[in-house]
Amino acid sequence: MSNDAIKKDKNSLYYFRANLGYDINGKKIQKYRSGFKTQKEARGVYSKLLLEEPETASEVTPTSMLFKDYIEEIFLPWYKSQVKIRTYENRLHSIKKHFSYFYKMPVDKIEPIHVQNWQSQLFKTLRVSYIRNVQGIFSLAMDKAILLGLTQKNASKIIGNVKKQKTKIEFWTKEEFEKVISCIYKEDYYQHFLYVSLWFLFMTGLRIGEATAVQWEDINFKTAVLKIDKTLFYKNLQHYEFVEPKTKASNRHIVLEEDTLSILKEWRKVQQNVAPSGFVMSYNGEPTQNHTISYAITRYAKLAGVHRIKIHALRQSHASLLIQMGENPLIIKDRLGHEDIETTLGTYGHLYPNSNFEVASKLKGVIQMSHSITNLDHSPSNQHTVGFLNQKN
C-alpha cells in the first residue's frame, strides 16, 4: 500500500482515495472513503476495496490496468500482509526498481517476449540467484493478477525462471583466518571488538543477524552452551528489533569450545568497563551494524594479504573448517541451523573432495585377499572365454 494512500484530515479522521482501474475510455476509476477513526481501520477498508471492487464494478475494465498501478495499489498491499515485515522492507526496493520495466504496460499485455527481454537486461549486471528471486516475486504478482481477473496468462511462467547455477562457496581457510586476526591489535579497544566479532562469526558459523542479536544472557559460561532463538532486524540506529529466526531449525543450541569462551569472557570484562552493553557484538552500547564487520574484513584481509570475503562467508568458513576436520554432515546441519541435510550437502557437499581419498585409504586392507587354487565351478564356460581358455591350455 502506498504510504500516501491513507491520510488524516483536520478533524484527525482518516480518509483515502483508491484507484480501482480504468473505464472503457481509459480514465481512472477512483473511490473515496472517509471518516475512519484509526489508520488501521482505513487501511483494512482500503485493501478490501482494492481486492474486491474490480470484480463487482461494472464500469471498470480490469484488463486495461497499468502494471504500475496494479503493483503499487493492489499487489504490494496484499504482499505486505503475506510476508514478515522485514522481508517486505528488504524486498520493496528491488520490486520497485526492477518491476519498473513493465510499469507503462497494461497487465494483460505483458507477453513472454517482454519477460525474455527483461531477463536479458537483468543478466547484464546482476547475479543469477538475485534474478531468480526477483522473477519469483514477479511470477507471484502475475499469478495474483490472474486470480483477480486482470490477465489470463502468466508470461513469466511461460518463459520460465533463469536456470539455477551452483553457487561458488567462498571462505577463509584456517591458515588465512589466522593471518587476518594476527593483524589486529587487541590493546586498542575498537580493534579488540573487531577481533572478537570476526572470531565469534568464524568459530560459530552464525548468520550475521543471529550473531548481532546474541546477548550475554544467551551464553551459559558454566555449560559452554550458546542459545540461538532470535535474529536482529536492523533498519537504523533508532529502529532495530528482535525477530524470529529464519527457520524453525534456526532455534538451536551451540556448544562453544574453551578458546571462544576465554575470548568472550575477556571481552565482556573490557566492554563492561568501557561501554556496557547487553549485546556481545557491541563497542558503543548498541548492536553492531553489518557494514562495520564488512569494512573490517576488507581492511584486515588487505593487511594480511588474503582474498576478501563477504560477511556470510565467515559462516561458510566455519562449515569448511568442520568439513576439513572430518565432522559428520548431520552435526554440521544442526550447528548451522539448516532445516534438512539436503541443504547442508547441497551447499557444502563439494567441499568434501579429499574424503574420497581418505575413504580409499581406510578401505585398504579391510578385506583379506584370497582365491581358490583349483577350479571349483564346472558349469559350462562363457562363450566369450572359450577361445581364450583353449589358447591358454
Rank of each mutant, 00 (worst) to 15 (best):
S100V: 08
G160K: 14
Y32I: 06
H312D: 09
L261W: 06
K97A: 12
R91Q: 14
E339Y: 07
I146S: 05
D334E: 15
F171V: 07
Y240D: 01
Q383W: 07
S381D: 12
E342F: 12
P62V: 14
L198F: 07
L389R: 02
L20V: 09
E258G: 01
Q316G: 09
Q135V: 01
E187I: 10
K164I: 04
K7S: 05
Q121P: 09
A213P: 08
W78H: 08
A304H: 05
L322N: 06
T288Q: 04
L201A: 13
K186N: 08
K80S: 15
L336V: 08
T231Q: 13
I24F: 08
G387S: 13
A313H: 11
T292L: 04
V225T: 13
M1L: 10
F200C: 11
Y88M: 10
G346W: 13
L201E: 11
H253W: 01
L66A: 09
F99P: 02
W172R: 08
H239R: 08
I113F: 15
F200N: 15
I158A: 08
F177M: 00
P112M: 12
K179P: 00
V115Y: 12
L198H: 10
T61M: 09
H253N: 07
M1I: 08
P287C: 05
H93W: 11
Y352F: 10
A313P: 00
Y283I: 00
